Simulated assay, not measured.
Amino acid sequence: MASRPQLRIESGTAIDWIIFDRPDASNAFSAALLDAFSDALTTLAETGASVIGIRGEGKGFSSGVDLSEYATGTPVEDVARLRRNLDRWQAMWRHPKPVIVAIHGFCLGIAAQMPCFADMTIVTQDARIGEPGIPLGGGYIAPAWVSQVGAKRAKELAFLPGNHVDGKTAVEWGWANAAVPADRLIACVEALAERMAKIPLPVLTMKKRSINRAMEAGGFLTAVNAISESDAILHFEPSVLELRERLAKEGLRETLAQFRGESSTEIFIRFKGDSADG
């Protein structure tokens, strides 16, 4: 029996949807899914509607990298693998069409890196967006957040294992454009696309390029193009290698439990409440 495709395209009048379709695997980014994503972007550059939307099937957007395929290889091979991911995201950045990411449920690990390269990000109010639950690397995801949320908030995201923010906080930080009720997410994105599609595509393309150039002048691409090397270095750090061995022996659930705790938002709310009580 043929395997189920991990990604599908739904065509529309104003927007074409790229949909991650691995709900049983939490839409984890496998090599096959990532290759299909790159192919979809290439196909839609020349055909289809004026706007591209990206969303996940099932309970969440994506849990991030597929740990069942996680392998670093040599340091040079690891840098190349990480670089390929960034090239995929930068294909969205360079794409001639506006790209809107629609996030519901969970958006973790490199799935929380990807929207930084999109043109707009719409989230559900209860979305959970953040770092990987197990610190197997570092310096790869949060640097992409800096241009949108600032260095201190990016560090707040990165320094707590499994740290996350909800949709409303993502908007307050500047990472997302709007947080909407879960049952209105798709309708909201499609309404935005309908308005955008009133502008001729060549005009949209040049508007996108001019704004991106302003970000590039501020150093966005220079910063993110250096992160593959820093992450690969940490993959071979002895404490990380030990953690990978523990993951292989104990399994994902048990290893995650050792790092699970409150998010920074929850900690701040708790201490704010303590101060008010006192």
Rank of each mutant, 00 (worst) to 15 (best):
A257E: 07
F271V: 06
A226D: 15
P161R: 05
S239I: 00
A49Q: 05
F37M: 10
T72Q: 10
T205Q: 14
K97Y: 01
R209L: 02
A197L: 07
Q125I: 02
K155L: 14
N27F: 00
L221N: 10
G278L: 12
G162Y: 02
E242C: 07
S210K: 09
K168I: 11
D16R: 08
R8V: 00
L185P: 06
I18R: 09
L256K: 15
A111D: 06
T169R: 15
S11C: 09
G219V: 05
I141D: 12
G60Q: 15
A179Q: 11
S38G: 11
R195D: 12
L247H: 13
A102F: 02
V51A: 07
T255W: 06
P161S: 08
G64W: 03
P96M: 02
F236D: 12
L185A: 07
F61T: 01
E242M: 06
T255Q: 14
V165M: 13
P5L: 01
G48W: 03
I269T: 06
E250V: 01
A45Y: 02
G218D: 13
S210I: 01
I19V: 09
M120E: 09
I211G: 12
L136N: 15
S38T: 03
F20R: 00
I122D: 09
F37L: 12
I18F: 05
G174D: 08
Y140T: 06
V240I: 14
F29L: 13
L82D: 06
P202S: 11
I233N: 10
T13K: 13
T74R: 08
A80F: 03
T222Q: 13
V203N: 11
A25C: 06
E237G: 03
S62M: 03
R8A: 01
S3V: 00
S3A: 08
L221R: 14
R84Y: 03
T124K: 05
R209D: 04
E57I: 00
G278Y: 04
R88M: 09
T124M: 01
R260K: 09
N177D: 12
S62V: 00
W93R: 12
S228N: 13
E242D: 13
A118I: 00
L243P: 14
T222V: 04
R128C: 10
G73Y: 05
T124V: 01
T169D: 09
R213M: 09
M196L: 15
V65L: 10
M114R: 03
L247M: 09
A179D: 07
S147P: 10
K208Q: 11
N177L: 12
M206N: 14
P181L: 00
N177Q: 14
D39S: 07
L221W: 02
R22K: 05
R260I: 01
L136R: 11
A2T: 05
T13R: 14
D126P: 07
P161Q: 10
T124R: 04
Y70K: 03
F106A: 15
N27T: 02
A214H: 04
A223V: 06
S50P: 15
W89F: 15
G150C: 12
R22A: 00
E254H: 08
K97S: 06
K59N: 14
I227W: 06
K272V: 05
I9N: 03
T13L: 12
E57S: 14
I199E: 13
P23I: 00
A151Q: 14
H164L: 06
L160R: 15
W93H: 09
